[in-house]
Design a binder for these strands. Structure first.
Lengths: 338, 338
DNA sequence: TTGTATGCGTTATCAC
DNA sequence: GTGATAACGCATACAA
């Protein structure tokens, strides 16, 4: 028994050739832009193709060329608008170049290699991920697949693995200086989950910046990487002690939660507390938050990733590009405390 | 000259067979779960495969089986958290079943057929889209592709095209009743873009519900389908006349904008104006908005779509399923106006 | 310009 | 349990 075919098999070039009374290669040529076909032949083929509803399959092309024109993208949850924006920009950029987006959603950073195994089976030309590659051991497993991989905001580079990063540490320093300039003497750092290297760098930069101004180290709050996490952490802090005058959050989602927690306790932002975040998600610009933040410029990150992948010399990995985060100053840090 | 191959061709089963000194079919069997291979043979093959970094390609399997195990999903912009959530749930559901997500992002609903042409070339097993199929003419073009298509919130069904809908009209009525029960005598409807059939139904239901209570028809505000659209439309209304006591918005994003516009004018929600939205995006639950809304239950919509596609009898289209929207009552409609 | 033949990497069938 | 072989749909080198 032959392998089970789908109930409605797609029309093949042979079907079209039969109907048009020509060879199968003629059909192929009629659909190939630069091929040598007489206009008459092309017309005959296209007519038969239209009658049957024929679409050339790219699958055999993948076998012949060894390139699928599909790029795998691995994301960890689109409930954070920043990741949704990254995916959005990336898919748009890929389509402009005639590439497809094979998307995988993974629950944890740990499942990255499992996802990559599957993507490798589909022979994706490259993989882009917002997830960090945790260990050097995981990296060598990925290197073994010999598929170009670009990570956003991961420190690590390796054969076949490149990195696009935001200048997290400098941004953290800048946040500290901004708050200090506004008169903040006592600041807090709302840290994300411990496994994010990028968030750690932002926190370190923030502490550096405070120290450079002769201020005390920040109160460090650990929280879940979400609106609720920011809300809960800020609420918990205020049970114990008076809130600091300045708050820097490892992302905007947490910052929005923190702001709402402060306001729920009757405090004003920026009247009583200045707040800054990171990512510049759309909600940061909403009038209810008007949040000062750092724009990671997702569009440029996507462009940089494709640039790395386009060039055979850099596609084999080991590259690192830094896209500077731009400070977006808004109302949440405009209150002047003196 | 043979066709240009990529600089680093993937390892094939023949390479593994050569290294292990076995036949190529033995390699295939070693990687097929239920095949008859001796443990010794399997071990030998797996060792050689690991040494070379071999991953079986699914591309030839697609050619033989006629099924790619890829589902195309066409979305129109992830800046709306609702669409991001739909995509998120869908990708998760697909992965649970071992299916891949081939994502396409299209600028306008008009480009749906262009996107489908490309997806057809990749021989996706089905297509799911949150975009509405505009005309019956467009539908017949899609039907010709003979690929199962599931549309969210489109009215139209056709051969190969099924629909998963929210009970928009009933929800609109319910919104009207809720506001009327709270003492609203004069209400407004913040309509989305004209091309959304779902939004139109919500508005019609809202008008129906107001009429059933003997109230005047709603003030209709046309706006862009976004936060800024809601903000601008609400702001413009207040330039002309006093705001209505109740507002129903065709989606949450616009509702958030409208709330911020009201507050920017010194009005309170829900103190002065009651507001309800649609979609139950995460931001609706944020404490700053606390927005009453209708949950479209994206997870169930995704499940229903897969159920339609799983059954060969329903995969060929013409089906319609309704997932009831659940009213989520929050603080934005809690003010009692008497 | 057009037709014929070959190969891409895998699975299924058949003979051993 | 194992190896040889056909087939999937298309693009290409070559022959006509």
């Amino acid at each position: 028994m032959p392998p089970a075919r789908p109930p409605h098999p797609p029309v093949s070039s042979i079907d079209v050739a039969r109907l048009a009374g020509v060879s199968q290669s003629a059909v192929s040529r009629a659909f190939s832009p630069g091929a040598s076909v007489s206009p008459k032949m092309r017309a005959k083929v296209l007519e038969a193709a239209a009658a049957l509803g024929y679409r050339p399959s790219v699958i055999p092309r993948i076998m012949l060329s060894g390139r699928s024109r599909m790029i795998g993208i691995v994301v960890g949850g689109l409930d954070n608008p920043f990741y949704a924006a990254v995916l959005d920009h990336f898919a748009t950029a890929l389509q402009t170049r005639g590439l497809q987006t094979l998307m995988m959603r993974v629950p944890h950073a740990l499942s990255l290699d499992g996802a990559l195994d599957q993507l490798a089976g589909y022979r994706v030309d490259a993989v882009v991920t917002a997830l960090a590659v945790g260990s050097r051991q995981a990296a060598s497993a990925l290197s073994a697949l010999r598929i170009p991989i670009v990570c956003f905001n991961s420190r690590l580079t390796a054969p076949w693995i490149s990195t696009i990063r935001s200048n997290n540490r400098a941004a953290g320093r800048l946040a500290a200086e901004l708050l200090a300039d506004r008169g903040v003497r006592r600041a807090a750092w709302l840290a994300g989950p411990a496994d994010s290297a990028a968030a750690r760098e932002r926190g370190r930069g923030f502490a550096d910046g405070l120290a450079a101004r002769g201020l005390l180290p920040p109160i460090v709050l650990a929280a879940d990487d979400s609106y609720d996490g920011g809300y809960a952490a800020m609420g918990a802090l205020m049970h114990r002690e008076p809130p600091p005058a300045g708050l820097f959050c490892s992302n905007d989602l947490m910052a929005c939660g923190a702001i709402d927690a402060l306001r729920a306790r009757g405090l004003s932002v920026p009247g009583d507390v200045l707040v800054a975040g990171y990512d510049n998600i759309p909600q940061a610009a909403w009038h209810g938050y008007d949040l000062t933040t750092f724009d990671q410029q997702a569009e440029q990150m996507a462009a940089a990733a494709l640039e790395l992948l386009d060039d055979p010399a850099t596609a084999t990995g080991g590259q690192s590009r830094t896209i500077p985060a731009r400070l977006i100053e808004r109302g949440s840090t405009s209150g002047l405390i003196t």
